[in-house]
Amino acid sequence: MTISIGDRLPEVSLKKVSPQGVEDIITRDYFAGRKIVLVGVPGAFTPTCSNSHVPGFLENHEAIKGHGVDEIAIVAVNDHHVMNAWAKFLGAEDKLIFLADGNGEFTRAMGLDQDMSAGGLGTRSQRYSMIVEDGVVKALNIEEVRGQAVTSGAARILEQIQA
């Protein structure tokens, strides 16, 4: 069942690379008492993710954070090494948080997984964005058209946080 507005995020462990090394991020603790924009993407270094979806959040990170958002986090079914390399490639390591859902547990628990094995990608995340306050989904934007980042893009999140 797909997560919905008003639902609490599932409690799972994600990974993040920091200057101290690899950190385990428990979703319950990470989202507690904070307002976070969470962006799910099918994969690091993939065309739409790298060319339009994540760059939109990178370009608008100050405007989004200016509306009381503590962090903008990008999550993908990739390992933490790939997510770290992608953050560096995009020049985003000081602006966005890159979380690795290497085994897809978080993505599956939210019901936002998709089978992309026909393209050789295995099980990945659907493209989405959401506003999460204290671990509860307040806004959810699931992209319906593959290869686009409109419904789940930064402009949509800006509209929602300004409302």
Results as ranks from 00 to 15, higher is better:
14 L>P: 01
117 S>E: 11
81 H>W: 14
18 S>W: 14
162 Q>T: 12
21 G>H: 08
83 M>Q: 14
111 G>K: 14
139 A>L: 04
52 S>D: 09
92 A>P: 09
163 A>L: 12
160 Q>Y: 03
54 V>N: 04
123 T>Q: 04
93 E>H: 13
159 E>D: 15
1 M>T: 15
124 R>H: 07
10 P>R: 07
142 I>K: 01
53 H>Y: 12
10 P>V: 15
60 N>R: 07
112 L>D: 01
99 L>I: 03
130 M>D: 05
97 I>E: 06
154 A>L: 01
30 Y>N: 04
116 M>H: 08
88 K>T: 15
135 G>F: 04
124 R>Y: 10
73 A>H: 01
119 G>C: 12
71 E>N: 15
133 E>K: 10
20 Q>K: 14
5 I>S: 04
18 S>I: 15
33 G>S: 11
161 I>K: 00
98 F>L: 12
141 N>R: 05
151 T>A: 09
106 F>T: 03
115 D>E: 08
5 I>T: 11
136 V>P: 13
97 I>N: 08
5 I>N: 09
156 R>P: 00
17 V>D: 04
161 I>N: 00
6 G>D: 03
107 T>W: 04
72 I>K: 00
102 G>F: 01
30 Y>L: 04
108 R>F: 06
161 I>R: 01
150 V>N: 08
68 G>H: 05
29 D>S: 02
34 R>T: 11
109 A>Q: 10
141 N>G: 02
89 F>R: 14
50 S>K: 15
121 L>M: 15
9 L>Y: 04
125 S>I: 02
123 T>H: 05
93 E>M: 10
41 V>G: 01
77 V>R: 00
13 S>C: 07
40 G>C: 04
57 F>R: 00
25 I>T: 01
151 T>R: 08
136 V>W: 06
163 A>W: 05
124 R>D: 13
148 Q>L: 13
115 D>C: 09
15 K>Y: 05
90 L>C: 12
2 T>A: 11
27 T>R: 01
136 V>D: 12
92 A>W: 13
138 K>D: 06
53 H>M: 13
76 A>Q: 09
112 L>C: 02
144 E>P: 03
58 L>N: 12
142 I>V: 15
65 K>Y: 01
121 L>F: 15
77 V>S: 03
79 D>M: 08
12 V>T: 15
61 H>K: 02
99 L>V: 00
104 G>I: 06
7 D>Y: 03
82 V>P: 13
29 D>W: 10
36 I>D: 12
56 G>D: 09
60 N>H: 09
12 V>W: 06
13 S>Y: 10
